[in-house]
Computed example of a mutant assay.
Amino acid sequence: MSDTSNINFISDISDTTIGGELIYDTVTVSKMLGVQESTLRKYCALMQKHHYEFNKNSVGHRVYYPKDVEVIKEIVTLKNSGSLTLSQAVKTILESDMDDITDTAPIANPDYSKLLDVFETFKNNQMQFNQKLLEQLEKQQNYIESSIDERDKKLMLAIKESMETRRQLAAEEEKKKSWWKFWRET
Rank of each mutant, 00 (worst) to 15 (best):
Q140V: 03
D12H: 10
A108C: 06
Y24C: 10
K153A: 07
R62L: 10
A170L: 10
I148Q: 02
N57S: 12
D25T: 07
E145H: 04
T85Y: 08
I7A: 01
L33W: 10
K42N: 10
N55C: 15
T85W: 07
T92A: 12
S38G: 00
S178V: 05
D68K: 08
L46M: 06
I101H: 02
V76P: 01
N125R: 04
I75Y: 05
L86M: 15
V90G: 03
E145Q: 14
P110C: 06
M32W: 01
N142F: 02
S2M: 04
T26N: 15
Y43R: 02
T165S: 05
L40V: 06
V76A: 07
S83V: 14
A45T: 08
Q131A: 13
Q131Y: 05
I144P: 00
E37Q: 15
N124C: 01
Q36T: 12
F9G: 03
G60F: 03
G60Y: 02
I23F: 15
E53Q: 08
K31R: 15
T17D: 07
V71G: 00
T121D: 15
S83H: 05
L134I: 14
E135F: 05
S96F: 09
V71A: 06
I93Q: 01
D68P: 13
E120N: 04
I159C: 00
D152C: 06
A105I: 14
E161V: 05
L134M: 04
K56T: 15
V59L: 10
S14V: 02
Y143I: 11
V27K: 14
M32H: 02
I148K: 05
Y52C: 04
W183E: 06
V29K: 01
S147G: 01
N109I: 08
M1A: 06
L94W: 03
I159P: 00
D152L: 14
A105T: 08
H50F: 12
L134D: 00
V90D: 02
Q88F: 00
M47G: 01
T26K: 11
W180S: 05
I75L: 09
D111N: 11
I13Y: 05
C44A: 14
F119P: 07
K42T: 11
S162T: 04
I159H: 03
S83E: 09
L33K: 11
E120Q: 13
